[in-house]
C-alpha cells in the first residue's frame, strides 16, 4: 500500500511517500505565492523519485498551515497530530515532541501509541520560530543553514534580551556595530530561543524521550542549546523537517485500514 503525506508549512512544503513500513521518498521545497501549483509540483517530484504515480496512491493526507488548500487530499489533519504520529513512528519511546517550525513552535505530550495527550503553542508573534532565525541570519549576513555551525565556534557568552523579532533584529545590529563576533551573537540567539521554548515546554509534563522536529532541529547550535536547557534525553531524527509529512502519511495509511 502506497500513501502520501503532505505538509504545507509557512516556509516550506514537504511531501513524502510511504510504502508499508518504508519511507520511499520525500521532497522539501520552499513555499511561494502559487501554493497550489507548488504543492502539486512537490508531490510530483516525490512520486518521480519513488517511481510511483498519483493514481497508485491509496490515500493522501495534508497537514500544516496550508492543509486546507489541498483539494486532492482525502483528509486534512493538524500538524500537531501529525508530528505526534511521525515522532512515535521514528522513535516509539517519544513522549514529548518539540516542533520548531517556520511560523510557530509547539510542544506536544504524547502517549506510547503516538496519541496527543496535551499540547501548547507559541503565541501569535514570531519569537522562537524559524522565521525569527531567518530574520536574524539576514541581519548577520549569514545563511540560515550555516547558523548552527557558526554558533559552535563561539567562545564568548552574549545575552540577547529581546524576543520580539523587530527588537531582536535591532539588538543584533547594535551588537554587530559594537564589534561582537557573529558566532557569539548567534549562540546568544539560540540560547534566547531555547529559553523561550523551554519555558513554554515546562507548562506541560515533560517526559523523556523528547523528539525535536521541524526545520530548526537541523540547526546543530539550536539543538545543543535546547539539550543544555532541557536536561533531558533528546532525539533528533535524521531529517526532522519531514516528521509532519511522515505523520500525515501514517494517518493516510490509517484511513485505508479503517475503510
Amino acid at each position: 500500500m502506497t500513501v502520501a503525506g503532505l505538509d504545507v508549512g509557512s516556509l516550506t512544503i514537504k511531501t513524502l511517500i510511504l510504502e508499508d513500513e518504508k519511507i520511499k521518498s520525500f521532497t522539501i521545497i520552499p513555499t511561494g505565492a502559487d501554493v497550489n501549483k507548488l504543492i502539486r509540483d512537490c508531490l510530483e517530484m516525490t512520486l518521480k523519485k519513488s517511481g510511483d504515480n498519483f493514481k497508485n496512491l491509496s490515500s493522501i493526507v495534508a497537514t500544516g498551515y496550508g492543509r486546507i488548500n489541498v483539494p486532492f487530499a482525502d483528509k486534512s489533519i493538524t500538524e500537531i497530530t501529525c508530528h505526534a504520529l511521525g515522532a512515535n513512528w521514528l522513535n516509539p519511546e517519544t513522549r514529548t515532541v518539540i516542533d520548531i517550525g517556520g511560523q510557530d513552535s509547539k510542544v506536544i505530550s504524547i502517549d506510547k501509541n503516538g496519541r496527543v495527550v496535551d499540547f501548547i503553542m507559541n503565541d501569535k508573534c514570531a519569537a522562537g520560530t524559524g522565521r525569527f532565525l531567518e530574520v536574524m541570519a539576514q541581519a548577520l549576513g549569514v545563511k540560515t543553514e550555516e547558523l548552527g555551525n557558526e554558533s559552535l565556534k563561539s567562545k564568548k557568552k552574549i545575552t540577547i534580551s529581546s524576543m520580539c523579532t523587530v527588537f531582536a533584529e535591532s539588538e543584533v545590529i547594535s551588537l554587530v556595530a559594537e564589534g561582537c563576533a557573529k558566532e557569539d551573537i548567534i549562540r546568544g540567539l539560540h540560547k534566547a530561543i531555547s529559553n523561550r521554548i523551554c519555558s513554554m515546554a515546562c507548562r506541560l509534563r515533560l517526559e523523556n524521550i523528547i523528539t525535536l522536529t521541524g526545520g530548526v532541529a537541523k540547526n546543530t547550535g539550536m539543538v545543543q542549546a535546547l539539550k543544555k536547557r532541557l536536561k533531558a534525553k533528546v532525539f533528533v531524527p535524521e531529517e526532522p523537517q519531514i516528521v509532519g509529512a511522515l505523520g500525515a502519511a501514517i494517518a493516510a495509511r490509517k484511513i485505508v485500514y479503517s475503510e
Partner: peptide
C-alpha cells in the same frame, strides 16, 4: 488566547490549528 473585540489580535490559521488539534485529541 485571543481577543473579544479587537480582530487585529485574531489569526485565522493559528486559531484553526489549535481548535482542530484539540478536537483531534
Amino acid at each position: 488566547d485571543g481577543d473579544g473585540a479587537d480582530s487585529r489580535n485574531y489569526s485565522k490559521g493559528q486559531t484553526r490549528t489549535r481548535i482542530e488539534a484539540f478536537l483531534e485529541m
